[in-house]
Amino acid sequence: MNVHAMNTQSQSPDDGIRAGDLLMDVRNVSLRFGGVNAITDISFNVRKGEIRAIIGPNGAGKTSMLNVINGFYTPQEGTIMFRGKERRGMKPHHAVRQGIARTFQNVALFKGMSTLDNIMTGRSVFMKRNLLWQMLWHGPALTEEIEHREKVEEIIDFLEIQHIRSTLVGKLPYGLQKRVELGRALAMEPSLLLLDEPMAGMNLEEKEDMSRFILDVNRQRGTTIALIEHDMGVVMDLSDRVVVLDYGKKIADGVPDAVKSNPQVIDAYLGVEH
Protein backbone atom coordinates (compact mmCIF):
# COMPACT_ATOMS: atom_id res chain seq x y z
CA MET A 1 0.00 0.00 0.00
CA ASN A 2 2.97 2.26 0.39
CA VAL A 3 3.22 5.16 -1.93
CA HIS A 4 6.45 6.10 -3.52
CA ALA A 5 8.96 8.05 -1.51
CA MET A 6 7.69 11.55 -1.29
CA ASN A 7 9.07 14.40 -3.21
CA THR A 8 10.58 16.43 -0.43
CA GLN A 9 10.32 19.80 -2.06
CA SER A 10 6.73 19.57 -3.28
CA GLN A 11 5.48 19.50 0.30
CA SER A 12 6.88 22.86 1.23
CA PRO A 13 4.01 25.35 1.14
CA ASP A 14 4.78 28.05 -1.34
CA ASP A 15 3.66 31.32 0.16
CA GLY A 16 6.04 33.68 -1.53
CA ILE A 17 8.13 34.12 1.58
CA ARG A 18 11.76 33.12 1.38
CA ALA A 19 13.43 31.14 4.12
CA GLY A 20 14.73 33.48 6.80
CA ASP A 21 12.17 36.22 6.15
CA LEU A 22 9.54 37.06 8.73
CA LEU A 23 6.62 34.64 8.66
CA MET A 24 4.87 35.89 11.75
CA ASP A 25 5.36 38.98 13.85
CA VAL A 26 3.72 39.31 17.25
CA ARG A 27 3.61 42.94 18.31
CA ASN A 28 2.89 44.14 21.85
CA VAL A 29 0.25 41.53 22.57
CA SER A 30 -1.54 41.60 25.91
CA LEU A 31 -4.18 39.14 27.03
CA ARG A 32 -6.24 39.48 30.18
CA PHE A 33 -8.83 37.24 31.81
CA GLY A 34 -10.69 39.60 34.11
CA GLY A 35 -8.02 40.85 36.46
CA VAL A 36 -5.43 38.24 35.52
CA ASN A 37 -2.78 39.35 33.09
CA ALA A 38 -1.98 36.16 31.22
CA ILE A 39 0.25 37.88 28.68
CA THR A 40 1.66 41.37 29.06
CA ASP A 41 3.07 43.33 26.13
CA ILE A 42 4.88 40.51 24.38
CA SER A 43 6.59 40.96 21.03
CA PHE A 44 8.52 38.36 19.11
CA ASN A 45 8.75 37.06 15.60
CA VAL A 46 9.04 33.79 13.76
CA ARG A 47 11.15 33.49 10.62
CA LYS A 48 10.26 31.14 7.84
CA GLY A 49 11.98 27.78 8.07
CA GLU A 50 13.15 28.03 11.67
CA ILE A 51 12.28 26.12 14.80
CA ARG A 52 11.24 28.62 17.41
CA ALA A 53 10.88 27.51 21.00
CA ILE A 54 8.71 29.19 23.60
CA ILE A 55 9.78 28.25 27.11
CA GLY A 56 9.09 29.38 30.62
CA PRO A 57 8.02 28.06 34.02
CA ASN A 58 4.48 26.80 34.63
CA GLY A 59 1.87 29.48 34.24
CA ALA A 60 4.16 31.73 32.26
CA GLY A 61 1.57 32.15 29.50
CA LYS A 62 3.06 29.87 26.86
CA THR A 63 -0.09 28.01 25.97
CA SER A 64 -2.09 31.25 26.10
CA MET A 65 0.39 32.63 23.58
CA LEU A 66 -0.26 29.71 21.23
CA ASN A 67 -3.99 30.16 21.71
CA VAL A 68 -3.65 33.78 20.72
CA ILE A 69 -1.62 32.87 17.65
CA ASN A 70 -4.15 30.41 16.32
CA GLY A 71 -7.14 32.58 17.06
CA PHE A 72 -8.59 30.72 20.00
CA TYR A 73 -8.20 33.80 22.20
CA THR A 74 -8.44 37.35 21.00
CA PRO A 75 -5.87 39.58 22.71
CA GLN A 76 -7.05 42.87 24.21
CA GLU A 77 -4.05 44.72 22.86
CA GLY A 78 -1.47 44.23 20.18
CA THR A 79 -1.44 42.85 16.68
CA ILE A 80 -0.26 39.71 15.00
CA MET A 81 1.09 39.94 11.49
CA PHE A 82 1.06 36.66 9.61
CA ARG A 83 2.64 36.52 6.16
CA GLY A 84 2.82 40.29 6.18
CA LYS A 85 -0.89 40.73 6.82
CA GLU A 86 -2.52 41.82 10.04
CA ARG A 87 -5.04 39.42 11.48
CA ARG A 88 -8.22 40.67 13.06
CA GLY A 89 -11.17 38.96 14.68
CA MET A 90 -9.97 35.56 13.63
CA LYS A 91 -11.71 32.27 14.35
CA PRO A 92 -9.60 29.12 14.77
CA HIS A 93 -10.88 27.53 11.57
CA HIS A 94 -9.76 30.59 9.65
CA ALA A 95 -6.27 30.22 11.10
CA VAL A 96 -6.08 26.74 9.64
CA ARG A 97 -7.06 28.01 6.22
CA GLN A 98 -4.24 30.53 6.47
CA GLY A 99 -1.76 27.78 7.23
CA ILE A 100 -1.48 27.55 11.02
CA ALA A 101 -1.89 24.09 12.53
CA ARG A 102 -1.29 22.94 16.07
CA THR A 103 -1.12 20.02 18.45
CA PHE A 104 -2.21 20.05 22.06
CA GLN A 105 -0.64 19.61 25.43
CA ASN A 106 -3.16 16.93 26.31
CA VAL A 107 -3.80 14.76 23.33
CA ALA A 108 -6.88 16.06 21.53
CA LEU A 109 -7.61 13.32 19.05
CA PHE A 110 -11.00 12.11 17.87
CA LYS A 111 -11.16 9.00 20.03
CA GLY A 112 -13.93 7.22 18.21
CA MET A 113 -12.15 7.32 14.86
CA SER A 114 -9.29 5.33 13.38
CA THR A 115 -5.81 6.73 12.88
CA LEU A 116 -6.46 7.03 9.19
CA ASP A 117 -9.74 8.90 9.74
CA ASN A 118 -8.12 11.21 12.26
CA ILE A 119 -5.45 12.24 9.80
CA MET A 120 -7.98 12.39 6.97
CA THR A 121 -9.98 14.84 9.09
CA GLY A 122 -6.97 17.12 8.91
CA ARG A 123 -7.51 17.23 5.15
CA SER A 124 -11.13 18.39 5.48
CA VAL A 125 -10.13 21.94 4.68
CA PHE A 126 -8.87 20.89 1.27
CA MET A 127 -11.81 18.69 0.36
CA LYS A 128 -14.50 20.42 -1.60
CA ARG A 129 -17.05 17.89 -2.86
CA ASN A 130 -20.49 18.75 -1.54
CA LEU A 131 -23.19 16.67 0.07
CA LEU A 132 -24.72 15.53 -3.22
CA TRP A 133 -21.48 14.07 -4.53
CA GLN A 134 -20.80 12.55 -1.13
CA MET A 135 -24.20 10.86 -1.24
CA LEU A 136 -23.34 9.17 -4.49
CA TRP A 137 -19.84 8.28 -3.30
CA HIS A 138 -18.74 6.87 -6.65
CA GLY A 139 -17.37 9.46 -9.00
CA PRO A 140 -15.87 12.80 -7.97
CA ALA A 141 -16.20 12.24 -4.23
CA LEU A 142 -14.29 8.95 -4.38
CA THR A 143 -11.64 10.42 -6.65
CA GLU A 144 -11.13 13.24 -4.19
CA GLU A 145 -11.08 10.84 -1.26
CA ILE A 146 -8.35 8.73 -2.85
CA GLU A 147 -6.35 11.78 -3.86
CA HIS A 148 -6.25 12.87 -0.23
CA ARG A 149 -5.75 9.34 0.99
CA GLU A 150 -2.48 9.32 -0.93
CA LYS A 151 -1.31 12.47 0.84
CA VAL A 152 -2.33 10.99 4.17
CA GLU A 153 -0.47 7.77 3.41
CA GLU A 154 2.66 9.83 2.77
CA ILE A 155 2.30 11.24 6.27
CA ILE A 156 1.61 7.79 7.72
CA ASP A 157 4.77 6.48 6.07
CA PHE A 158 6.72 9.50 7.25
CA LEU A 159 5.66 9.02 10.87
CA GLU A 160 6.04 5.24 10.68
CA ILE A 161 2.55 4.48 11.89
CA GLN A 162 1.45 2.15 9.09
CA HIS A 163 0.67 -0.67 11.51
CA ILE A 164 -1.95 1.34 13.42
CA ARG A 165 -3.63 2.76 10.34
CA SER A 166 -7.03 1.28 11.09
CA THR A 167 -6.86 1.13 14.89
CA LEU A 168 -9.18 3.36 16.92
CA VAL A 169 -6.93 6.04 18.40
CA GLY A 170 -8.58 5.68 21.81
CA LYS A 171 -6.91 2.27 22.07
CA LEU A 172 -3.40 3.48 21.21
CA PRO A 173 -0.63 4.09 23.74
CA TYR A 174 0.14 7.68 24.60
CA GLY A 175 3.32 8.05 22.56
CA LEU A 176 1.60 6.86 19.40
CA GLN A 177 -1.36 9.13 20.05
CA LYS A 178 1.02 12.08 20.14
CA ARG A 179 2.43 10.92 16.83
CA VAL A 180 -1.02 10.61 15.27
CA GLU A 181 -1.79 14.11 16.47
CA LEU A 182 1.34 15.38 14.77
CA GLY A 183 0.20 13.56 11.66
CA ARG A 184 -3.17 15.25 11.78
CA ALA A 185 -1.49 18.64 12.06
CA LEU A 186 0.83 17.80 9.15
CA ALA A 187 -2.15 16.81 7.02
CA MET A 188 -3.22 20.44 7.11
CA GLU A 189 0.00 21.31 5.26
CA PRO A 190 0.69 24.23 7.56
CA SER A 191 3.26 26.89 6.89
CA LEU A 192 3.44 27.41 10.65
CA LEU A 193 3.13 24.41 12.94
CA LEU A 194 2.48 25.05 16.63
CA LEU A 195 3.45 22.20 18.94
CA ASP A 196 2.30 22.43 22.55
CA GLU A 197 4.62 20.19 24.58
CA PRO A 198 5.06 17.50 21.94
CA MET A 199 7.18 15.41 24.32
CA ALA A 200 5.28 15.76 27.58
CA GLY A 201 5.01 12.45 29.38
CA MET A 202 7.20 10.53 26.96
CA ASN A 203 10.10 8.24 27.75
CA LEU A 204 13.58 8.86 26.36
CA GLU A 205 13.14 6.69 23.29
CA GLU A 206 9.82 8.30 22.37
CA LYS A 207 11.38 11.71 22.87
CA GLU A 208 14.21 10.83 20.52
CA ASP A 209 11.72 9.62 17.91
CA MET A 210 9.61 12.74 18.25
CA SER A 211 12.66 15.01 18.03
CA ARG A 212 13.68 13.27 14.84
CA PHE A 213 10.19 13.74 13.38
CA ILE A 214 10.21 17.43 14.30
CA LEU A 215 13.59 17.97 12.66
CA ASP A 216 12.52 15.99 9.60
CA VAL A 217 9.30 17.96 9.26
CA ASN A 218 11.29 21.15 9.48
CA ARG A 219 13.97 20.13 7.00
CA GLN A 220 12.17 17.97 4.48
CA ARG A 221 8.88 19.81 4.34
CA GLY A 222 10.24 23.25 5.07
CA THR A 223 7.61 23.76 7.76
CA THR A 224 8.22 26.54 10.24
CA ILE A 225 7.71 25.29 13.78
CA ALA A 226 6.96 27.06 17.01
CA LEU A 227 7.06 24.72 19.99
CA ILE A 228 6.55 24.79 23.70
CA GLU A 229 8.62 22.30 25.63
CA HIS A 230 9.83 21.78 29.16
CA ASP A 231 12.70 19.42 28.42
CA MET A 232 15.58 21.90 28.20
CA GLY A 233 17.92 19.43 26.54
CA VAL A 234 15.43 18.95 23.72
CA VAL A 235 14.73 22.67 23.41
CA MET A 236 18.37 23.67 23.25
CA ASP A 237 19.19 20.98 20.69
CA LEU A 238 16.22 21.45 18.41
CA SER A 239 15.51 25.12 18.27
CA ASP A 240 17.13 27.88 16.28
CA ARG A 241 15.86 30.66 18.55
CA VAL A 242 14.21 30.65 21.94
CA VAL A 243 11.84 33.11 23.57
CA VAL A 244 11.46 32.89 27.34
CA LEU A 245 8.30 33.95 29.17
CA ASP A 246 7.79 34.39 32.89
CA TYR A 247 4.58 35.61 34.56
CA GLY A 248 3.27 36.63 31.14
CA LYS A 249 6.25 38.81 30.31
CA LYS A 250 9.06 38.21 27.89
CA ILE A 251 12.37 37.98 29.74
CA ALA A 252 14.72 36.75 27.04
CA ASP A 253 14.85 36.10 23.31
CA GLY A 254 17.71 34.76 21.23
CA VAL A 255 19.77 31.76 20.22
CA PRO A 256 19.78 28.86 22.71
CA ASP A 257 23.28 29.50 24.03
CA ALA A 258 22.61 33.14 24.77
CA VAL A 259 19.33 32.33 26.47
CA LYS A 260 20.91 29.58 28.54
CA SER A 261 23.41 31.96 30.10
CA ASN A 262 20.93 34.82 30.61
CA PRO A 263 20.79 35.50 34.38
CA GLN A 264 17.08 36.41 34.28
CA VAL A 265 16.24 33.07 32.72
CA ILE A 266 18.25 31.22 35.33
CA ASP A 267 16.45 33.16 38.06
CA ALA A 268 13.07 32.39 36.56
CA TYR A 269 13.78 28.69 36.46
CA LEU A 270 15.66 28.32 39.71
CA GLY A 271 13.64 30.90 41.63
CA VAL A 272 15.01 33.97 43.27
CA GLU A 273 14.23 35.91 46.40
CA HIS A 274 11.93 38.81 45.72
Partner: peptide, 19 residues
Protein backbone atom coordinates in the same frame (compact mmCIF):
# COMPACT_ATOMS: atom_id res chain seq x y z
CA UNK B 1 -15.58 12.51 9.47
CA UNK B 2 -16.41 16.14 10.14
CA UNK B 3 -19.48 15.11 12.14
CA UNK B 4 -17.58 12.51 14.11
CA UNK B 5 -14.82 14.94 14.91
CA UNK B 6 -17.38 17.39 16.29
CA UNK B 7 -18.83 14.57 18.37
CA UNK B 8 -15.47 13.39 19.73
CA UNK B 9 -13.89 16.76 20.53
CA UNK B 10 -15.40 19.94 19.24
CA UNK B 11 -12.50 22.20 20.22
CA UNK B 12 -9.98 20.08 18.37
CA UNK B 13 -12.37 19.92 15.41
CA UNK B 14 -12.44 23.69 15.27
CA UNK B 15 -8.65 23.77 15.37
CA UNK B 16 -8.30 21.44 12.41
CA UNK B 17 -10.27 23.93 10.40
CA UNK B 18 -13.81 22.65 10.79
CA UNK B 19 -16.54 25.26 10.91
Amino acid sequence: RVWKSVRDMDIAAELVGID
